[in-house]
Computed example of a mutant assay.
Amino acid sequence: MTPRDRQVRALLADVAREAILPRFGRMADGDREEKSPGDWVTIADRESELLLAAGLQAIDPDARVVGEEACALDPTLLEDIGRGRLWLVDPLDGTNNFAAGRTPFGMLIALAEDGIVRHGWLYDPVADRLCHAGRGIGSFVDGVRVSATGSGRSLPIATFSRYWMSSEKAARLEQRAQGTLALEEGLRCAAAQYPALVDGRCDVALFERTYPWDHAAGALFVEEAGGKVARLDGGPYRIDDAATGLLAAATPQLWDRAAAVFAE
């Protein structure tokens, strides 16, 4: 790990111990609320984002911080994320799982410059595991370099979330995937879903929503491990592109196979 990787890892672990893990499975009444139907935010999200923002500014004062909860209060923060140097923060990814007292949930940080993600960190507070990647450097799990190979199954495992799409669209995808992909419900946690593509638990992941704090770190982690992440038309993923629909796969070949099913 580089000195910055060690600093970010220490910050993530410290914030998790202070603001997240003590509340896991112990949420009190009033500790959570719905930002929108089915989309929860908790006191742990808000407190951990403040702590992370302060810590990241200390690590790199020249980079501004753009966090999920800050953007929920002020959406204009997203207007210029394609310019300059910035930290992208999802302080508690998989909040719905966390609020229900179940795993997976995680923490996501990415460092971007002029719309290009240069570094990404995905932290599992329960396992104390860090996945991180640097553009042109590679992908690592707790400092050990990793490569994605896929599950090796004859029917590749493809995950998606029915929750964020219409029942009609989900039914169309299920019908088209028959005999080509084995569809499974996604984890509803990008911090866990992207590593699952690299360690062989799944081969493909289709994401409907593409908020930058959810995908910046994970997309880089999969790509640097040899996988492919792109829009369904094959276009590149950029953090300043607000379009819906993103397809990630353990290998370019698996991406092509899945795109033939999922592209509409």
Rank of each mutant, 00 (worst) to 15 (best):
K169P: 13
A16L: 00
G150C: 12
L73W: 14
P212R: 03
M1D: 12
L220W: 02
R64H: 08
A70D: 06
G226F: 01
A99M: 03
E79K: 05
A196L: 07
I59H: 07
L78W: 02
R238Q: 13
S36I: 06
L232N: 05
S147C: 07
A16V: 01
L173Q: 09
S166N: 01
L254G: 01
A258F: 04
F98A: 06
I239D: 11
R238E: 15
R102T: 10
G67F: 03
F221L: 15
A182K: 08
E47K: 15
R231W: 11
V8I: 14
G227Q: 02
S139H: 13
G136K: 02
L108F: 05
R4Q: 00
D114C: 03
D128M: 14
G38K: 13
D240Q: 02
A217C: 11
A13W: 15
E69W: 15
D214V: 15
P156M: 08
R4M: 01
R153M: 13
D233N: 13
L232W: 09
A263S: 14
G245E: 05
E34I: 10
Q175K: 15
A249E: 14
S166Y: 08
R23V: 03
E34W: 03
A13M: 15
D80K: 02
R135W: 11
T76F: 09
D114K: 12
I157F: 04
T42W: 14
F140A: 00
F105C: 00
R64M: 02
R32D: 08
G120P: 08
I239R: 07
F262I: 07
K169G: 12
G84E: 02
D93R: 09
R9D: 14
F160I: 11
I20H: 07
